[in-house]
Design a protein around this nucleic acid. Structure first.
Lengths: 343, 343
DNA sequence: TTGAAAGCGATACCAA
DNA sequence: TTGGTATCGCTTTCAA
C-alpha cells in the first residue's frame, strides 16, 4: 500500500509543509532525483534539472535539514562554545569563524558557557544532541566528564584562545604565560619602576598577571600594586580598580589591565581625577578591542588577532571534517604589544 | 526479520553512536519507554526510571535531536536574525533572549544579515531549513519574497527594534520617529540653539535623524549641521564626523550621534582638540551601550532597554509556541533620554 | 541517468 | 504503566 498523500485528506501523521515528495510529483520524477538535483546538480540531466528547479520555485520548497542530517549524518552545523556573546573579543572571533564557515555552507550554533546557572556538561550535551559536524571551544580547561562527552562525539574539535600541550584535537590560540612575560619585559625595558595591575578574576587573566609579576620580580621590580575586579568587567571595574591602586599608594608608573574595557575605565577615572595620561601614568590594556587602530591614543594594548583565531579555527576544522590531513594541531597565533602615541 | 545490531557486526547503514535502542536493550525495556523516561519521567514507574537512568549514564547516551525533532516536529530551536553579532546592542538583546529561552529548554541559532555577500532570502531559507520553532527578526523591513517564506514557515515570528502598524506576527520595539522627536524637543527645551548630527548611513538611524531635524525645524531651529558616516561605525567614525561638523562651522551646541560608539569618538576628538565637554559642547549618544550607569559622565544618551526587548521577545514567542493567547502583538518598550552629570 | 527500497533515530498512536 | 508499529523527510545503497 503506497502512500498517496495528495489524494487522501490526511494521513496519520501528515504535515502541512512541502516536502521533496511534493516537488517530485510536480516535476514528474522520483524524490531521489530531486534530492540529487539539489545536492549534486551535475549528476542530473539538464532537462530534468530544469523541471525540478521549476517545481521547487513553484512550490516554495524549503529542504528539511533535520531529515537530511539524520539520513546523511552530516548536519552542516558547527557548534561554538564561548563564555559570552556580549564580550566583544569572543563575538569578533565568532564573527570571523562563522563568516568563513558560512561560505563553505556551514552554519554555526552558539552556546554560552559563562553563566553559572548553566553547567558546562549540560551545555555540551545540549549542543552535541544537535549533532554538529564540528565544535569550537574557548579555553582548554574542561572537566573530566566534559572531555569524555567531547571525545565521545567523535567529531573534530578546536580549542581556542589558549594553548595546551595536549589538545583534545586541535588548538588555535596563544600562550597567556608568554603574554605576561612579554608585558613584564616591555615594562622594564621602558624603564618603568612602578607597576599597578587591575585584573579580572578570570582564569586566563590571572595566568597573564601571574606570569607578568614573576617576570617583573625576576627583573628586579618588586613594587607591584594589584587590584582584583570581578568578571565580567565594565568601565566601572576599571574606575574602581584604579581607585584601589591609588589607595594602595600607586602614583607614577604603568597600570596593566586585564582587558581594554578595564583600561578604558582606568583612563576615565584618571581623567576624572585630573591625572594626565600618558604623562603621569601610562595604561596598558589587553585585547585591542574597541580601539580601532590609531583611534585611541592614550592607551597601549596587547593585540590579539581575533580574525586570525576565528579564521584558522574554521579552516582547520573544515580540513578535519573533509578528512584532509592537518599539518599542525597546535597553532600559535601570537600577540603583539601595540604602543599608542599621543597625537 | 528484526534488527539485532548488537549481534551482527555491521548493518547496512550502521552508525557508531549510541542510540535509544542501545539504552533500551541495556535497561531491558523498549525504546519508547526510554524516550518517556527522558521526556515525561512522571509517566514511568520509578523502578523503571532508575533502570533507564542507570543505563543512560552507563552508556553516556546523548539524544539525537535531529531524529527527535523530525518525529515530533518540535525542534526546541529558535532562530534569531540580527545585523551583526559584534554590534553590542544586538548582542545584548540576543544574550537576554537566549538566556530566557535556555531556561525554557530552547536553544537559539543565529543568523547575521548585515553582510552584503549574504542575501537575506538565502539566509532565511538556510535558517528555516533547520525547522526552528520560532524566529526573531531585527527590523521590520523585509522584501516581499522574504515575507512569503517567513509566513510560509507557519511558526511564530517576532520583529524587534522597530515597530510597525502591520507586523508579520508580533513586534517588540520602539518608534524611531518618536526618538527623533523626543531628541528634538529635548534639545530645544534645554535652550540649545545649534545642533550637529553625526549619523551612520543606516536605515533606522536615518529615520531618527530625519524626525529630529523635522522637530527642530518645527521648533524654529534651523542651524543644523550634519555629517554622515558609514556603518558599521567605530570610534574613528565619531572623530571624523565631528571634524566634519567643525569644518562646517559648528562651534557651541550639542552633537547628536546615531550611536554611543560615535558619541564616544566625538568625545575623543573633542578632547584631542581641547574642546571641553560638556562645557563648550555637549554630546548625545544613542543606545546606552558600553556606558554602565553613572560611569561615563560626559555623554548623555538615549537609553534603549535591550534586556527588555530580548526578554519580551522571548516571552511572547514562547507564549505563541505554547499556543497561549497573546494579548498584545505590538509591544512598545519605549526609550529614555539619560542625562549624565559631570562628577 | 534514474529509481525502489531500506534505513537514519527518535516520537505518535493505539493497544495491551 | 508499557510496548508494537508506523511514521517524520531525507539520503544511502544497489539495481536497472
Amino acid at each position: 500500500m503506497k502512500k498517496a498523500k495528495s489524494t487522501m485528506k490526511q494521513t496519520k501523521r501528515s504535515s502541512d509543509s512541502i516536502t521533496l515528495e511534493d516537488v517530485a510529483r510536480l516535476a514528474g520524477v522520483s524524490t531521489i532525483t530531486v534530492s540529487r538535483a539539489l545536492n549534486y546538480p551535475e549528476k542530473v540531466a539538464s532537462t530534468t534539472l530544469e523541471n525540478v528547479n521549476r517545481a521547487i520555485s513553484q512550490t516554495g520548497y524549503v529542504p528539511n535539514l533535520l531529515a537530511g542530517g539524520l539520513a546523511s549524518k552530516k548536519t552542516k552545523l558547527i557548534a561554538a562554545i564561548i563564555p559570552s556573546i556580549t564580550n566583544s573579543v569572543y563575538a569578533e572571533t565568532i564573527q570571523h569563524f562563522s563568516s568563513y564557515l558560512r561560505e563553505a555552507g556551514y552554519q554555526v550554533i552558539l552556546g554560552e558557557s559563562g553563566y553559572p546557572e548553566q553547567n558546562e556538561q549540560k551545555l555540551i550535551t545540549t549542543i552535541l544532541s544537535r549533532k554538529p559536524d564540528g565544535l569550537l571551544l574557548t579555553g582548554v580547561n574542561h572537566s573530566k566528564e566534559c572531555r569524555k562527552f567531547l571525545l565521545g562525539a567523535k567529531i573534530p574539535l578546536v580549542e581556542t584562545w589558549e594553548l595546551t600541550q595536549s589538545p583534545l584535537d586541535i588548538a588555535v590560540g596563544f600562550s597567556h604565560e608568554q603574554v605576561g612575560v612579554a608585558v613584564g619585559s616591555y615594562v622594564t625595558n621602558k624603564g618603568i619602576k612602578q607597576v599597578g595591575s587591575v585584573c579580572a578574576n578570570d582564569r586566563r587573566a590571572k595566568i597573564r598577571e601571574q606570569a607578568m609579576c614573576d617576570e617583573l620580580k625576576r627583573r628586579g621590580i618588586d613594587d607591584i600594586k594589584t587590584a582584583e575586579v570581578s568578571a565580567p568587567t565594565n568601565l566601572q571595574s576599571g574606575r574602581a580598580g584604579f581607585s584601589q591602586l591609588l589607595q594602595q599608594g600607586f602614583r607614577n608608573g604603568i597600570v596593566c589591565c586585564s582587558s581594554d574595557t578595564v583600561a578604558h575605565g582606568v583612563l576615565i577615572e584618571a581623567q576624572a581625577r585630573g591625572i594626565r595620561v600618558p604623562y603621569e601614568i601610562s595604561i596598558l590594556g589587553f585585547g585591542d578591542q574597541n580601539f580601532a587602530s590609531e583611534t585611541y591614543p592614550a592607551i597601549s594594548t596587547v593585540r590579539v588577532d581575533r580574525s586570525k583565531i576565528g579564521l584558522l579555527a574554521a579552516e582547520t576544522l573544515l580540513a578535519r571534517i573533509d578528512e584532509k590531513a592537518v599539518e599542525k594541531t597546535i597553532i600559535d597565533v601570537g600577540f603583539e604589544i601595540v604602543e599608542r602615541q599621543t597625537t
